[in-house]
Design a protein around this nucleic acid. Structure first.
Lengths: 371, 371
DNA sequence: GCCGTTGCTGAATCTGTGA
DNA sequence: ATCACAGATTCAGCAACGG
C-alpha cells in the first residue's frame, strides 16, 4: 500500500506518488508550516473520492441523489483536511482554492474541524472563459480560504512586504491575475495542456511571500504538475508534493528540476517592527540620550510633562509610564507614548520615537537584522 | 403569535413585523419570484477593536448576531432557507450575501436543501475598512450566492440588459461598488447610523435588474432598513419585507414612502463605470516581468538597488518599497518610485514605469473591465 | 464660493511578552 | 492557565470648518 515511487530531485523538496490520504498518514505530526490545497472541484469526479476509512467511493450513479454526492465529497474533504491538520505545526496554516461547486463545502469543513479562518481571498481572473450560453454571469473568479490550524495559531503574515509591494497600501482580499496560459502552461507530448487546472505561478508567489518564511516547508496534497513546488523552490522554501497520477508527478518533477532558486538575499522579506529589539524608555534615559527633568510635550503642546529619573513621566500630579500618562491626559484607554510625546529641538517638536534610533546606534543594533 | 403589525404603504409592497421563520410560514407556497437574504453573519467578535488613534471601532455587537455555536447558526439558517424554498415559485431564485464568517455554511445549506447554484458573485468594496492591526489582508469584499429553487428551475436572467450596460461585454461575477455611506446611509434621531449593516442600493439595483422582471414579487426575510424594498419600488417590482425590530421596520417604511417609482420605460439598466486598477510594483514581479535580484538604478546611475522577491527594493542596508527607498536615497520626504528607478536594457536606462504597460497588457487592462 | 485641513467612520472573527 | 502592560497599527469618502 505504499507510494509507488518517491522522487527526490533536490534538497528543496520531494514528490510522493500515491493516494493523498494514504500518503498524508505517513507524514509526521506537526512537521509542516503551510499547506496549499487545490482539491478536485467537480463532483463528476466522485469516482476518485475516498471515504475516511480509505475505501474508494463508487463511481457516480444516476440513482444517487445530490445529497449522496455532496456527502461523499464532504467525507473525502474532511478526511484529508483532518490529516492535513495533524501534520501542520501549531502555528501552521492552510490555503485551499475552489469554485462555487466545492468551496462552500470546503469552508464549512475547515470551520468544523477547528481551523480558524484568517481571510477568504478572491482570485479575479483577467481572462476567464466566457459564459457561452448567456445564462449566467461570466465565472470570473475563484475563491481561496486562508486559515490557521487553530484559533490560537499565530500564523506567518509578511504584512510589511505585501504593503511595500502594493505601493505602500495594505494588500486587499481581492487579487487580479491572468489564468495560466502561454509558455507557462505545461504541454504534453501531443501539445495539449498537460493538466486541466494548472494554477499560475504568480498566485503561488503571492501566497508563499505572504504566509511563509524562507526555509519553511510547504505541503501540497494535490500536487498536479507542481506549481507549488516550482514556486517554493524558486523562493527558497521546501516542498512536499503528493500526486496520485504518475504522469502528472513526472511532469512536475521535470518542471521543478529546471527551476533556478533565487539567491538567498533576493528572498529576504521586510522585518516587522515588532521583530526588532525593544528599547524601553528607561534605557533612553540610562544612555543619557535624554536627561531627567527634560520637558516633553503633546503633539500640539497641549500638555507639558517632565521626565523623572526612574523612567516615568510626571504631569499634573500624576506619575506614570509614557504610555499610561499619554492615555490619561487624552482620556483614552491606551496610548503609544513613543508617538504621543515630543521633545523640543531647535524650536520644533519631534516625537521621542526618534530617540530610539540613536539608542539602537549606541547599542550596536544596526538596521540590518537578519534572522 | 402573529406579527405585531403589518404595514402596507402602497401597492408596491408590505412589511411584516415579526420573527422571520414565523412570518415565512404564513406566506403561501410558490408565491414569490425572488428572495434576497442578508442574514446575521455570526461574526463571533471577541473583544473591542481599537483604531491606531485609540478610538473604538463601532462593531456589530447586536444581540441578533449572537449564536451559541456553528450548529445553532446552521439550524437557524436551514430553517429559514427551507421556508424560503417553499414560498418560491418553481422557477424562482434566491440571493444570499455573507462574509467568510457565514457564507460557507450558507452555501453548503443551500446546496444540501436542493437549491441549484447559478453563480457566486463577489462584491468588491471600493472603500472597505482597513485592517488596523496589520495581521490580515484588508477584508475588501463580501460574497453573494445566486441559486435557483431547483436544478431544473429556469431562473430569470436579463443577460442582454446586463451586457448592454457593461459596454457590450458579458457581466462578470466580480462587481465593484462603494459601501453605503454619505446621504444614502440612514441616520437615527441622534445622527448615528440607523442600522449597522445597511447595504448600498446600487447592489440591489444590479441584482433586481439581473434576476427579476417588472411586476415580480421580491421577498427579503431580513429587511432591516429596507434597501430591498426601496430599490424594488423604484424599479417597479413588488416587495415583501420581514423584520423583527420595530424601529428598523419603521425606518424602512418611512424611507420607502419617499421613493419615487421610475417610469415604466425607464426601468432598464444604468450605465456602468469602468475601473482601471492600479498596477503595484509587486504585481510586476509576480507576473515575471521583472525578476528578483535584478538591479535598478537612479536616473543617472547614482545608486544601484536590487529587487527582492517580496516586491521591495534593497540598497545600502535598507529595504523598502520603490517609493520609500527612492525617497530615502534622495533624502526627500516622498518619491514616485515609478519614475525614479530605472532598469537597463540594451545599455540604456529606462524608467520602470515602462514595465507597467506590459503588466496592463497581461492583465487585460487595455480592454474594458467590468465594474 | 473655493480650497486645503482636520476629523469621523465603515459587517472586524485584528498583539506579543513576561510574570 | 490568567493578567498586566508595552507599544504597533489605517484607507477612502464624506462632512465640517477656516481662510
Amino acid at each position: 500500500m505504499g507510494s509507488r515511487r518517491v522522487k527526490v530531485r533536490s534538497q528543496s523538496g520531494k514528490i510522493l506518488v500515491g493516494d493523498c490520504i494514504a500518503e498524508l498518514k505517513k507524514l509526521p505530526t506537526a512537521s509542516v508550516d503551510l499547506v496549499f490545497a487545490d482539491p478536485p472541484y467537480n463532483l463528476q469526479l466522485a469516482g476518485d473520492l475516498m471515504r475516511p476509512n480509505n475505501t474508494k467511493v463508487d463511481g457516480v450513479d444516476d440513482q444517487w441523489d445530490k445529497f449522496d454526492d455532496f456527502a461523499a465529497y464532504d467525507s473525502f474533504c474532511r478526511a484529508w483536511l483532518t490529516e492535513v491538520r495533524r501534520v501542520l505545526k501549531p502555528d501552521g496554516a492552510i490555503w485551499v482554492i475552489g469554485s462555487y461547486h466545492n468551496i462552500f463545502r470546503l469552508g464549512a469543513a475547515i470551520q468544523d474541524l477547528g481551523f480558524w479562518i484568517q481571510n477568504d481571498v478572491i482570485w479575479r481572473k483577467v481572462n476567464p472563459m466566457p459564459n457561452f450560453r448567456g445564462k449566467r454571469f461570466t465565472n470570473a473568479h475563484e475563491t481561496m480560504i486562508w486559515a490557521g490550524r487553530d484559533r490560537k495559531s499565530r500564523v506567518t503574515f509578511n504584512y510589511e512586504s505585501l504593503k511595500a509591494s502594493n505601493d505602500d497600501l495594505q494588500m486587499r482580499s481581492d487579487w487580479l491575475f491572468p489564468i495560466c496560459s502561454g509558455p507557462e502552461r505545461l504541454k504534453d507530448d501531443g501539445g495539449r495542456k498537460a493538466h486541466p487546472t494548472q494554477k499560475p505561478e504568480a498566485l503561488l508567489h503571492r501566497i508563499l511571500i505572504a504566509s511563509t518564511k524562507p526555509g519553511d516547508t510547504v505541503l501540497d496534497p494535490f500536487f498536479g504538475t507542481g506549481t507549488t513546488g516550482a514556486v517554493a523552490k524558486r523562493l527558497g522554501r521546501k516542498f512536499i508534493g503528493i500526486e496520485r497520477d504518475l504522469d502528472y508527478a513526472t511532469a512536475a518533477d521535470e518542471r521543478i528540476a529546471k527551476v533556478q532558486p533565487l539567491e538567498t538575499e533576493a528572498i529576504e522579506t521586510l522585518p516587522s517592527k515588532r521583530s526588532e529589539p525593544r528599547i524601553p524608555f528607561g534605557q533612553i534615559l540610562e544612555l543619557g540620550i535624554i536627561k531627567p527633568g527634560r520637558k516633553l510635550f503633546g503633539p500640539r503642546r497641549e500638555v507639558r510633562a517632565e521626565v523623572r529619573a526612574d523612567g516615568t513621566l510626571f504631569y499634573d500630579g500624576q506619575q506614570a509610564s509614557i504610555h499610561r500618562l499619554g492615555a490619561i491626559v487624552q482620556g483614552k484607554a491606551a496610548c503609544n507614548g513613543w508617538t504621543y510625546w515630543h521633545f523640543e529641538a531647535e524650536g520644533k517638536l519631534k516625537p521621542i520615537d526618534d530617540l530610539r534610533s540613536e539608542a539602537k546606534r549606541q547599542l550596536g543594533l544596526g538596521s540590518r537584522i537578519s534572522i
